[in-house]
């Protein structure tokens, strides 16, 4: 494929992804507003009617249900923001930070469960996860500054340590609540609650907004941290920003992928994109496209087979990665001649 055709295909893919994302944000917002705004309720019902027609023609039983749309919307948005943040993380050689923060977020869920069981607090568990994950993110950043590295030792300590705290709290609090902890570990088989979907919408705006503003700065510190320091960028601040964004994405994505698999969405599409991309900008574009392909195909498989979405999504992502390796070694073999 020549460069122009390739760019056109990528552009079409990004436009399609953006339209899909806007539609999904619309659906999730309408669902949130339908009890308060008459017009929203009307539009939402029309949308469900369209879903019924889709089910009728496709022979499926998916699109007529509001909760399915909510889950699909969450999956699609995660398939955008996780690879975007992951593009910086992977090339910053911080790939396992996501995994670490997921385990920290798990401790947050445990703390939330414990709080709600003992104090009657009925806040959202994801809020607790988000707060603790952001604190964990700042903790990782602090450790990295002190030890002068994002090396695997502080990461391993943080990862296992927060999981250990999480399990202790859950053991103490066992029987206090009816929440299935497996959903947080392995990703939910069923549906994302409306509050979870709304959280991801907010996260999507926040992450894409921050990236749009700080694209250049994050690129510079990722590519050449020392030169960025010399150019008087506040590298510590941007590192903290990147890690906090990672925590935010991880907590949203955890609903679908679970603590254990969440890092895959940050890393695998980016690894695939980096095999083929000719520039950093193209890496971002391709990682979002590969991320979308993974979540859509993976989610379709999960519905078809009636299993949790996390496994299929990750397996599809890795299949794409293997294909890009094959494609890139073929193209470099061709260019040898």
């Amino acid at each position: 494929m020549n460069a122009t055709a390739r760019r056109s295909v990528e552009f079409a893919g990004i436009v399609a992804t953006a339209l899909l994302a806007v539609l999904m944000i619309g659906v999730i917002s309408l669902e949130a507003l339908r009890d308060h705004v008459g017009a929203a309720a009307f539009l939402y019902e029309q949308f469900i009617v369209v879903g019924e027609w889709m089910d009728y023609y496709l022979g499926t039983g998916v699109f007529s249900h509001g909760f399915m749309w909510r889950t699909i919307g969450t999956v699609i948005l995660i398939g955008i923001i996780a690879p975007v943040v992951g593009t910086y993380l992977v090339h910053r050689e911080m790939a396992l930070i996501g995994e670490t923060l997921a385990h920290t977020a798990f401790a947050g869920v445990a703390v939330g469960l414990f709080f709600s069981a003992t104090t009657g607090w009925d806040g959202n568990l994801l809020t607790a996860a988000l707060v603790v994950a952001i604190l964990g993110a700042l903790g990782v950043q602090w450790l990295a500054e002190r030890t002068d590295t994002y090396g695997d030792v502080p990461i391993a300590i943080m990862l296992t340590g927060s999981f250990a705290v999480g399990t202790i709290i859950i053991e103490y609090g066992q029987g206090l609540s009816g929440v299935a902890i497996e959903d947080f570990l392995f990703g939910s088989a069923a549906v994302v609650p409306s509050s979870g979907a709304q959280l991801v919408v907010v996260q999507t705006f926040a992450v894409l907004g921050v990236i749009a503003i700080t694209y250049k700065q994050l690129l510079f510190i990722t590519f050449d941290e020392q030169a960025a320091r010399v150019a008087r960028l506040n590298v510590t601040w941007y590192n903290a920003l990147l890690i906090v964004m990672t925590a935010v994405v991880v907590v949203g994505a955890m609903q679908i992928l679970g603590v254990i698999l969440v890092a895959a969405m940050l890393v695998v599409p980016v690894a695939a994109a980096s095999q083929l991309a000719e520039s950093f900008r193209e890496t971002l574009v391709l990682s979002v496209l590969f991320g979308q392909a993974s979540v859509l195909a993976g989610y379709a498989i999960s519905i078809h087979q009636g299993i949790a979405a996390s496994g299929p999504i990750v397996v599809v992502a890795i299949a794409i990665y293997l294909l890009t390796i094959a494609a890139s070694s073929r193209s470099s073999a061709l260019s040898m001649h």
């Binding site: 510079f220 590519f223 050449d224 980096s274 520039s279 900008r281």
Partner: peptide, 20 residues
Amino acid sequence: TSRGGSMPVTVREAVRMGRF
């Protein structure tokens, strides 16, 4: 000390950093 070794960044993208 630079990640130019593995990261897909074009020459132009790298030089543009001088304007950041």
